[in-house]
Design a protein around this nucleic acid. Structure first.
Length: 255
DNA sequence: ATGGTAGACAATCTA
């Protein structure tokens, strides 16, 4: 099973780039974030032609997540169980080939200490509690745009980023709390060095300078960690015309 | 020092 996660920053703007990548990468499962469109605008037919089923949790203008899969997705869950009407579309989960796949778009948080920062920390607490119903012996995979770089080696300039949004102490602690459920970072099962990033700001030539952060992740419970053959970040789509500011993260499992 | 760029959607908001 080959699974990928990608924040596409508008699926309608990014459709050419995403279909081009899918045609050669051929993931079995593709988790998308930041669709920026409602369910009825999602290009499900185009993905159907490429052989994918789409489970979509859209939202007008902001957010929106989807799980595309070659095989059937069952028990699809949209949002947190206690979400009220008008809650952000940031979470979708489905069972595919026996794996509980959870696709999360963690809030950006804007700036440390802001209302959006507190919303981010609250949302991450909710995500932590979301796994209360699962045991770490089950095959569970949590992926998406976590909007947090876990460690210094995931940041191009840790000194500059220390205490900033995406790399502040409380965000990293909240991430550790979620991980404490029993997750392992699939990417770090195989690669230990620095210089691997999944996001580069559109501004100030960040990609050209390789001024990136590793904020998109695939986390897995023990049964999946033991069957994880490879995990990498494919930075090629970030070099294409009209790219997303994020690039796909991939994991391959014998499962 | 509060920019810089991209997207949605029509004056700002979010990232």
């Amino acid at each position: 099973m080959k699974i990928a996660t990608w924040n596409v920053n508008s699926i309608t703007a990014r459709l050419p780039v995403v279909t081009r990548w899918v045609e050669t990468a051929l993931p079995d499962v593709l988790c998308l974030q930041e669709l920026k469109c409602m369910d009825e605008k999602f290009p499900a037919e185009q993905f159907r032609e490429l052989g994918y089923n789409s489970e979509v949790f859209g939202q007008r203008t902001y957010n929106g997540v989807a799980i595309l899969s070659r095989n059937a997705a069952t028990n699809v869950q949209r949002g947190f169980p206690d979400d009220e009407a008008g809650a952000h579309s940031r979470l979708i989960a489905a069972t595919i080939e026996g794996v509980r796949v959870v696709n999360a778009y963690v809030p950006n948080g804007q700036s440390v200490g802001s209302d959006k920062y507190r919303f981010k920390l609250d949302w991450m607490q909710k995500l932590h509690r979301f796994f209360d119903v699962h045991k770490s012996g089950e095959p569970v995979l949590l992926c998406g745009d976590f909007n947090v770089a876990p460690e210094e080696r995931d940041v191009h300039d840790p000194t500059q980023w220390e205490g900033q949004i995406l790399f502040s102490k409380l965000e990293r602690a909240a991430l550790e709390q979620i991980k404490g459920w029993g997750f392992e970072d699939a990417f770090r099962l195989h690669t230990q060095d620095t210089g691997h990033y999944s996001w580069w700001d559109y501004r100030q030539g960040a990609f050209r300078r390789d001024a990136g952060l590793r904020i998109d992740h695939i986390w897995v419970s023990d049964p999946l960690a033991r069957s994880c053959k490879e995990s990498w970040i494919d930075r090629e789509p970030r070099t294409w015309e009209r790219p997303s500011d994020h690039t796909p993260v991939i994991g391959v499992f014998d499962f």
